[in-house]
Simulated scan of single mutants.
Amino acid sequence: MSVLMTMRVTGDPAAIEKLGADNGALFQGVVADATSRGLISHHFYGSKSEVLVVDEWPDEESFQGFFEHSGSQIQEIMAKAGVTAEPEPEFWRHLEVGDDVG
């Protein structure tokens, strides 16, 4: 069963959006690498001062392999968004409780 990976960092969500608009090739390169390593879905979310990344991966190991390979590109994106702390991915497994919607 797949896992969700979440990564929450302090940073400027508007800077992430601007970076994506101005330098989409950087994001697309990272997404292409992630997809080739098993990425199922990927989304950025923002609040006033935080950025949340939510990915779905086949397993933790697939994400870890991607993160080790593309770490410099991810660091570049984070630095341009004003992120100063090292991101810490968290992994979540689906719980079967019988109330799923969608």
Rank of each mutant, 00 (worst) to 15 (best):
E86Q: 14
G71E: 11
H42A: 10
R93A: 14
Q73L: 11
K48R: 07
D100K: 15
A85I: 05
S62W: 04
G24V: 03
K48P: 05
V3K: 08
E96N: 11
S41N: 13
A21D: 15
A32F: 09
P58Q: 03
M7S: 15
K80H: 12
A81K: 00
L4P: 10
G46V: 01
G11F: 02
S49V: 00
L39F: 04
E60P: 13
S47V: 05
M1T: 12
P89E: 06
A25H: 11
V30N: 03
V83E: 00
G102W: 13
D33H: 07
K48T: 11
F91K: 08
V101T: 13
E56R: 09
E60K: 09
Q64N: 14
M7P: 08
V3T: 09
I16M: 02
E76I: 01
L19R: 01
D12H: 01
E61W: 08
V51L: 06
P13W: 01
F27M: 05
W92I: 08
P13Q: 00
D100A: 14
G24Q: 03
T10M: 02
A85M: 11
M78Q: 06
G71V: 07
A21K: 15
P13G: 00
F91G: 12
T84V: 10
L39N: 03
T6K: 12
I77T: 02
S49D: 01
Y45G: 04
N23S: 14
E90N: 12
V9Q: 02
G71M: 08
V53R: 07
H94Q: 12
I74V: 15
I16C: 01
